[in-house]
């Protein structure tokens, strides 16, 4: 991917993130990522109806990579069936961890396909992934 395009996509999503800002609605499930890193501190909320992710929102303080990755990932996940969402999260995680993955399902998330060159930023890119996996787990356990 062209470096300028990559930078533009990340920066757009950092400066004007999609679905940033929480809402007070108890039909959503909530997690905080504070324990995943000492510095990034994001809250995520998610609503699932009939096996489909109806909404995800996030808020908090985090770096350009965590914030933009949250924005892009959320945009992709909304409207997905849970199984497809899990597949997307798995492929995304594999990409960040330099394992085999299907780049076709990741779309814009491919902007992070070279993040492993900066090992200290892998956790930043994975932060929304961890949060949403946790949310899915909690919602499944709650069923």
């Amino acid at each position: 991917m062209d470096d300028n395009l990559r930078r533009e996509i990340i920066l757009d999503n950092y400066q004007e993130p999609f679905h940033k800002g929480l809402i007070d609605d108890n039909s959503y499930c909530k997690v905080n990522t504070n324990s995943e890193s000492c510095i990034d501190n994001l809250d995520f909320i998610m609503k699932i109806s009939n096996g489909i992710i109806e909404d995800i929102r996030f808020d908090g303080e985090a770096c350009a990579i965590s914030t933009s990755a949250s924005s892009i990932l959320i945009r992709k996940l909304i409207g997905m069936r849970i199984d497809d969402a899990k597949d997307l999260l798995k492929n995304y995680k594999n990409m960040i961890n330099e394992k085999d993955y299907d780049e076709d399902v990741l779309g814009e998330l491919n902007v992070y396909n070279e993040i492993s060159k900066q090992p200290n930023r892998k956790n930043c890119a994975l932060l929304p992934n961890v949060a949403i996996e946790k949310l899915l787990g909690e919602m499944e356990n709650g069923k």
């Binding site: 770096c63 350009a64 900066q118 930043c124």
Partner: peptide
């Protein structure tokens, strides 16, 4: 600029 971005 977020502090971590500055340090990177």
């Amino acid at each position: 600029v977020f502090a971590q971005d500055s340090s990177v």
